[in-house]
Computed example of a mutant assay.
Amino acid sequence: MRVWEIREASQLPGLRRDLRRELAQRLPGNVLDDLQIVIAELAGNAVQHGAHGPIGVSIHTAGPQILTRVRSAGHYRHHTTPASDITTLAESGRGIAIIDALVDEHGHDHQHDVTTCWARLTWH
């Protein structure tokens, strides 16, 4: 399992580059693309809605399964904007719906003022 730490949104492009570099030999390109989108959305939400401080991003691969976790201080809750409420000009509200379309399952847990958002992908 590998863990990255970020503190602000400006670090997200570097995180995506590191993911691609590290996982390109182990994952098909389309799976890696989906994983990058999912992690960018989860980490971006943690930066935007979580408490200030480090955000830990971890990836665990086991055969065709990938589990990613984004852990941050604070107690926040993700919500999905109904598709009917999202306009083409909306600047936010699509992230969790996108994640839902790309992964097998996802969720979040809260313990001791720490939020962990996770997503599980399976590829064949």
Rank of each mutant, 00 (worst) to 15 (best):
Met1Ile: 01
Arg2Ser: 06
Val3Met: 11
Val3Tyr: 02
Val3Lys: 10
Trp4Gln: 01
Trp4His: 07
Ile6Lys: 01
Arg7Asp: 13
Glu8Gln: 13
Glu8Met: 10
Ala9Ile: 15
Ser10Thr: 13
Pro13His: 05
Gly14Glu: 10
Gly14Arg: 10
Leu15Lys: 01
Leu15Val: 12
Leu15Arg: 02
Arg16His: 08
Arg16Gln: 05
Arg16Lys: 14
Asp18Glu: 14
Asp18Gln: 15
Leu19Val: 13
Glu22Lys: 04
Leu23Tyr: 05
Ala24Gln: 15
Gln25Pro: 08
Arg26Asp: 14
Arg26Ala: 06
Leu27His: 02
Leu27Thr: 04
Pro28His: 04
Gly29Val: 12
Asn30Lys: 05
Val31Tyr: 08
Val31Ser: 06
Leu32Ala: 03
Asp33Met: 07
Asp33Asn: 15
Leu35Ile: 12
Gln36Ile: 09
Ile39Ala: 01
Ile39Val: 12
Ala40Met: 13
Ala46His: 02
Ala46Ile: 09
Gln48Tyr: 08
His49Gln: 10
Ala51Gln: 13
His52Asp: 14
His52Phe: 09
Ser58Ala: 04
Thr61Cys: 07
Thr61Pro: 02
Ala62Glu: 14
Ala62Tyr: 02
Ala62Arg: 02
Gly63Ile: 06
Pro64Gln: 09
Pro64Val: 14
Gln65Pro: 03
Leu67Ile: 09
Arg69Glu: 03
Ser72Asp: 05
Gly74Glu: 04
Gly74Thr: 10
Gly74Arg: 05
His75Lys: 04
Tyr76Pro: 07
Tyr76Ser: 04
Arg77Ala: 09
His78Leu: 14
Thr81Phe: 08
Ser84Tyr: 11
Ser84Pro: 10
Thr88His: 10
Leu89Glu: 05
Glu91Lys: 15
Arg94Lys: 13
Ile96Val: 14
Ile98Asp: 03
Ile98Leu: 11
Ile99Leu: 08
Asp100Lys: 07
Ala101Gly: 03
Leu102Thr: 08
Val103Cys: 06
Asp104Ile: 04
Glu105Gly: 04
Glu105Thr: 03
Glu105Trp: 00
His106Ile: 07
Asp109Pro: 04
Asp109Arg: 06
Asp109Leu: 07
His110Asp: 09
His112Arg: 13
Val114Thr: 12
Thr115Gln: 05
Thr116His: 01
Trp118Asp: 00
Trp118Leu: 00
Trp118Arg: 00
Ala119Glu: 01
Leu121Arg: 00
Thr122Tyr: 02
Thr122Asp: 07
Trp123Arg: 00
Trp123Lys: 00
His124Asp: 09
His124Asn: 06
